[in-house]
Amino acid sequence: MEGFGWIMTIILGALAGWIAERIMKSNHTLLLNIVVGIVGALLGNWLFRLLFDATLGGIVGQLIVAVIGAVILIWLVRAISGRSRV
């Protein structure tokens, strides 16, 4: 989440983590949603730059990228741990 302050990063991370949690039918705490959302944003931005040589700009664009990254992150954790619920 380039160019955002700490407060906006935490808010967007929490929102992205919560949306990804709902998509993947998980059950996380607020703190874990924030972490999943922020790490998901990093993963999503990395993937978008790798695949498209660009990323989405603005708050809405970064929220979309963070949600996609968070969904991938939850899926990866489930695949590696072999658990159906994370």
Rank of each mutant, 00 (worst) to 15 (best):
M1G: 12
E2I: 13
G3E: 09
G3Q: 12
G3F: 13
G3N: 09
F4Q: 00
F4P: 00
G5S: 05
G5N: 05
I7S: 12
T9F: 11
I10A: 08
I10T: 05
I11W: 15
I11Y: 10
I11L: 14
L12R: 00
L12W: 05
G13A: 14
G13C: 12
A14C: 12
A16D: 03
A16M: 03
G17K: 06
G17W: 02
G17A: 00
G17L: 03
W18A: 14
W18M: 14
I19T: 08
I19H: 08
I19S: 09
I19V: 09
A20C: 07
E21W: 04
E21F: 04
I23Y: 03
M24T: 05
K25M: 00
N27K: 15
H28F: 14
H28V: 08
H28R: 02
H28M: 06
L30S: 09
L31R: 09
L32M: 12
L32R: 08
N33V: 09
N33H: 07
N33D: 10
I34H: 03
I34V: 05
V35C: 07
V36W: 04
V36G: 03
V36I: 09
V36C: 06
G37Q: 07
G37V: 04
V39Y: 14
G40W: 01
A41W: 01
A41V: 01
A41K: 03
L42D: 11
G44T: 02
N45I: 13
N45M: 09
W46T: 15
L47M: 06
F48Y: 12
F48D: 07
F48T: 10
F48H: 10
R49K: 13
R49Q: 15
R49M: 13
L50I: 13
L50P: 04
L51A: 10
L51N: 07
F52G: 10
F52T: 06
D53A: 10
D53K: 04
A54P: 06
A54G: 13
T55A: 04
T55S: 03
T55L: 02
L56H: 02
L56C: 10
L56T: 07
L56A: 09
G58Q: 04
I59C: 06
I59G: 08
V60W: 13
G61N: 08
G61H: 04
Q62A: 05
L63H: 02
I64C: 04
I64N: 06
I64T: 15
V65S: 02
A66S: 12
V67H: 01
V67S: 03
I68A: 03
G69R: 04
A70L: 05
A70P: 03
A70C: 07
V71H: 01
V71F: 02
V71T: 12
I72D: 02
I72Q: 01
I74N: 02
V77C: 09
V77M: 13
R78Q: 11
R78I: 06
A79C: 14
A79K: 12
I80K: 10
S81A: 13
S81T: 15
S81D: 13
G82A: 12
G82R: 09
R83C: 12
R83H: 11
S84A: 15
R85I: 13
R85M: 12
R85W: 10
R85G: 11
V86Y: 15
V86P: 08
